[in-house]
Design a protein around this nucleic acid. Structure first.
Lengths: 357, 357
DNA sequence: TCGGCGAATGTTAGCGGTATCGATAAGCCG
DNA sequence: CGGCTTATCGATACCGCTAACATTCGCCGA
């Protein structure tokens, strides 16, 4: 790691030039075209070759030159990212993921917010008129039927993120919400909890329903009867979590654990618990869903389901780009990509102090 | 404006391609090089020729292709963005800004995280070896002296963001922390508060010192004596805010307001207040600094100083690009750019209930 | 055994600019 | 009026990558 590199450097004063596709090709012992194919994940490359090239890429720390790429390639793609007012924490992770992938695949991302009062469909139409080639929809727009309708009519390939029950013709990136909620609930039951409160998510989103299903499934498996009183409506906002937690904790026989449908609401539950003099997790276990930054900001840090948000939006862009570049827009609607979630255990859960069995 | 254009269009279905430098050259009856010279306002072009070309450019509504330009010109710029473990909310805003600007100015951003145990200097060296042309440093690395030293030695232009007291030879993007803290403190005083607690930021960062100075200045201006007991050490984390707020609120004669050096710690102060049965803002005013997402997530939403994080990182990239493209690396170190902050008032402040004058 | 055929890989021609250097015309001197 | 410098301008070689076409190779059926 010195002779050759040093030579290269000294050749032209100190200018270290970035490695090019040719360098990679030389190192891997293939032609530049093959490297190009690997980079763009085109299908016609033997697995072994692909790996060799990948290794060379990693070794040189090579990144394709965007300028050259867009100059040589077809006209640059533009993707629209339309959002309304989700959890800010969620959104920023989401934006980071799509922007990263956008950089990698050299597409433009047009980010547009739909203001609260505004007509959603108008915003979509504006975007379509602006000539975007595809659209990405984070929650809650991922299931706004009017938006989807406009998009479908305009024949704009669309990918919705975090939709638990996919719509026909709309590609979807998701995790298995039901199974994740089931796992978390089972975890709580395993800890010894029997009265487990549940804070619902926004009723318009299918993920909310899926999470509730998972909660019920785990209860059923453990032979614990479902108690409607332990389920409180929430809307994915901190504020709504405050109200829901207040309700759940005001019962005579309050739950020993609360499972909120997202972290914002879980954080709210922690706040309410503290306000009532309850220690988390000693007196009350609280866990969330999503694992946004907030989960590790507050104290105690939340036990939660880690949803790979950055990865999900990255994949959304990637999917759109692949389809658009390969001119297979027709196929796009049928894609269903489910990513892995993970239960991450932190400090907000514990065994119940007073068993209420 | 019709015959030739129409022909061009109809030749290939409906594809309207953007005019190229060659089109301009043909229309103006000169060579493409001359057009290039006019575009770049190089001196060696006769005035009359220049005008002819300009006219052609205007007529075709020509704009140079950025990709082609940067491809042909100097090698593409690569900027490194090195971070360790700041507030996640801060980081994502930061990344968004730099990525956005990167797309606009057609440079690559190499993002790298320095893991906790890892040797920071090693990470810097790796990045430099990777051939980045400039480096951007968000907090807390913006004032890590060892990092700065390595960078300076390697002669890599660097811009630090949020440094209140600039280092020689390192460009800086900042806001006037002192003045912002002064304004916020004055605001609290204006509300009627006299005993105002202050939670310090991390002692290694100059912004912390500047904010304290601002606090003291406002106190002095109002003729309120500075009370050391009202200042608690924090480290910009939620956790440290918890301890600091606990200290401040345990006094007999507790402050009627707490001004925390960032939002994370302010949120912690709110949590502690609630745990002690104090209503915010009725019993205690709390305000923060930065205006990250957390500030509007919690309840009550925080009154805080809005620091334009996205804009700051955007400017950092822009500054680096300008300097690097103009080959004036020597000048880079002397830049000091201060952006505007804004005091945004939300629900966490109010006049004190029991005057403690 | 051999043509044929599909999969994997290589070759070549640009994409739209800029850098370099050569060409041309004009200006200047003795 | 010839030679030489100067101010303008033009021809051409890339920049790093991809599209389109060419090539190679292994394997199959006749």
């Amino acid at each position: 790691m010195s002779e050759s590199e040093r030579k290269r450097r000294s050749s032209k004063s100190r200018q270290v030039k970035a490695p090019t596709i040719a360098d990679v090709a030389a190192l891997a012992g293939v032609s530049i075209m093959t490297v190009s194919r690997v980079i763009n994940s085109e299908p016609k490359v033997r697995q072994s070759t692909r790996e060799t090239v990948m290794a060379a890429i990693a070794r040189l720390n090579y990144a394709p030159n965007r300028a050259a790429r867009s100059l040589a390639g077809a006209s640059q793609l533009r993707l629209g990212l339309l959002y309304s007012n989700p959890s800010e924490a969620f959104l920023s992770a989401f934006v980071v993921g799509s922007l990263e992938e956008a950089g990698r695949s050299d597409v433009q991302i047009v980010i547009q917010k739909v203001e609260d009062g505004e007509d959603v469909c108008l915003a979509v139409e504006r975007m379509v008129a602006g000539g975007v080639h595809g659209v990405i929809l984070p929650p809650p727009l991922n299931e706004a039927n009017d938006v989807l309708a406009v998009l479908r009519e305009a024949n704009v390939p669309t990918v919705a993120v975090t939709t638990a029950v996919p719509h026909a013709g709309i590609a979807t990136i998701m995790i298995d919400d039901r199974s994740a909620a089931r796992e978390m609930t089972a975890h709580l039951i395993g800890l010894g909890h029997r009265r487990i409160g549940f804070i619902l998510g926004h009723p318009a989103l299918s993920a909310s329903g899926a999470r509730l299903e998972g909660y019920r499934a785990a209860l059923a498996e453990a032979g614990i009867p479902f108690d409607e009183a332990l389920v409180a409506q929430g809307y994915f906002t901190y504020r709504s979590g405050l109200d829901a937690a207040e309700r759940l904790l005001s019962f005579e026989d309050r739950p020993s654990a609360i499972f909120a449908s997202n972290d914002d609401m879980a954080a709210a539950a922690v706040a309410i618990a503290h306000r009532r003099g309850l220690d988390v997790p000693r007196d009350l276990t609280v866990c969330g869903f999503d694992d946004v930054a907030l989960a590790t900001t507050i104290w105690p840090e939340l036990t939660t389901i880690q949803q790979p948000i950055v990865e999900m939006s990255r994949r959304a862009v990637e999917l759109l780009v692949t389809m658009l570049r390969n001119k297979r827009e027709d196929e796009i609607g049928d894609q269903r990509i489910a990513l892995e979630y993970k239960l991450v255990r932190r400090q907000s859960d514990a065994a119940p102090r007073l068993s209420s069995r």
